[in-house]
């Protein structure tokens, strides 16, 4: 065997560089700075009540963002989540009310008119998974780009929801159903617990399972993944089923929180959710990103909106600020990557 000179031998060692650390923890740092800023400006901000309120608000976005992280890791996108959420929520509501005819009947809240919340939840998730499966098949079998398929889905599922409901809401569920959206365990709202639970499951899946590794591989380089023996089509299909699942779950929790479901629910959610994932550091080009980042991104948007509301900033200005932050987050990410690549 040949000897190798020292210069070649060591290779480039990753150095401790402030920019790398900053890049890695930028969302967290930004969140901390934001929270300190708001608590100085507005004493009402840093109270347990307000903070749990923020968390409850972001939980549904958070659930959807977990699913979206899987899709974006494979360099895909899912624009249909809001529409699937509306449809799944209506189906769950109708199951709980025992049919559309009972839509306006308001019980005393102690007993359900239709089936129990278990069946409603199953129905919501079932609708979500089915919708995800259909879109995933269109993407993998007919090779239509995810953007186009889910753009179509966004319109079609919204239409289906409107058709199914005839336009009006379905409201008034029993207490057991409503508990999933409005209840608390100790001081912690139930939606927050659901969000945290699924975030942990998703984190374990992505970091510690073969399936998680394969998602990163497919997102990082689909051709190399195929030549390494991975079933790329199956993996891509699966992530759209996952977003469908989380849309269904989110639909159930949202219906419970509002004690109502309607066809226009979830309008525009896809943008907030994609923003959370991207601000959390997941690359739209696939292959890099974490659930931790997504959780931080979701909370960050929630804190920002909450703080701005408390500071009496107009809703219009809030939208401008969110938009600017999305662009800045990606610009910062790109800047850091180009700095690193130049080395």
């Amino acid at each position: 065997m040949v000897q190798v000179t020292a210069g070649e031998a060591v290779g480039r060692r990753p150095q401790f560089r402030p920019i790398n650390v900053a890049a890695r923890f930028a969302p967290v740092l930004f969140l901390v700075v934001l929270m300190i800023g708001f608590s100085i400006l507005e004493p009402r901000f840093l109270t347990p009540l307000n903070l749990f309120n923020v968390l409850r608000q972001v939980s549904i976005y958070g659930l959807l963002a977990i699913g979206m992280t899987f899709v974006i890791l494979t360099a895909g996108i899912d624009l249909s989540i809001g529409s699937i959420l509306a449809m799944a929520g209506l189906v769950a509501a109708v199951v709980a009310k025992g049919g559309l005819d009972n839509r306006f009947s308001v019980g005393d809240g102690s007993a359900s008119l239709g089936l129990g919340w278990e069946f409603a939840a199953l129905a919501a998730v079932g609708v979500g998974v089915a919708a995800g499966l259909v879109q995933g098949l269109a993407i993998t079998r007919f090779k239509v780009p995810p953007f186009v398929v889910t753009l179509g889905g966004m319109s079609a599922f919204r239409g289906a929801a409107l058709l199914f409901s005839g336009g009006g809401p379905v409201s008034g569920f029993d207490d057991a159903f409503v508990w999933w959206g409005q209840g608390k365990v100790g001081p912690v709202p139930v939606p927050v617990l659901i969000f945290v639970l699924f975030a942990i499951i998703a984190h374990i899946t992505l970091s510690y399972t073969r399936y998680g590794r394969q998602i990163y591989a497919v997102g990082g380089n689909p051709e190399a993944a195929r030549l390494a023996g991975l079933n790329v089509r199956k993996i891509i299909l699966s992530v759209y089923v996952i977003t469908g699942f989380f849309s269904g779950l989110g639909a159930f929790v949202l219906a419970a929180r509002l004690n109502s479901a309607e066809a226009v629910a979830g309008t525009g959610f896809e943008l907030t959710v994609i923003a959370s994932v991207v601000i959390g550091g997941t690359s739209l080009f696939g292959g890099t990103g974490t659930i931790f980042g997504t959780v931080i991104g979701t909370v960050l948007i929630g804190v920002l909106l909450n703080g701005l509301v408390l500071l009496d900033v107009s809703a219009y200005v809030q939208q401008i600020i969110i938009g600017v932050i999305i662009v800045l987050a990606v610009a910062f990410d790109t800047f850091v990557k180009s700095r690193r690549r130049a080395l």
């Binding site: 073969r210 590794r213 394969q214 990163y216 591989a217 990082g220 380089n221 051709e223 190399a224 993944a225 030549l227 390494a228 023996g229 991975l230 292959g287 890099t288």
Partner: peptide, 26 residues
């Protein structure tokens, strides 16, 4: 098969050695 174009067809350039080395042998 070790393909001809290492970067395009074999490696996941943004991922760790760990992820690259064991991807086929999970």
């Amino acid at each position: 098969l070790v393909p001809e174009d290492r970067k395009q067809q074999a490696l996941f350039l943004s991922l760790s050695i760990r992820a690259n080395l064991t991807v086929a042998a999970h």
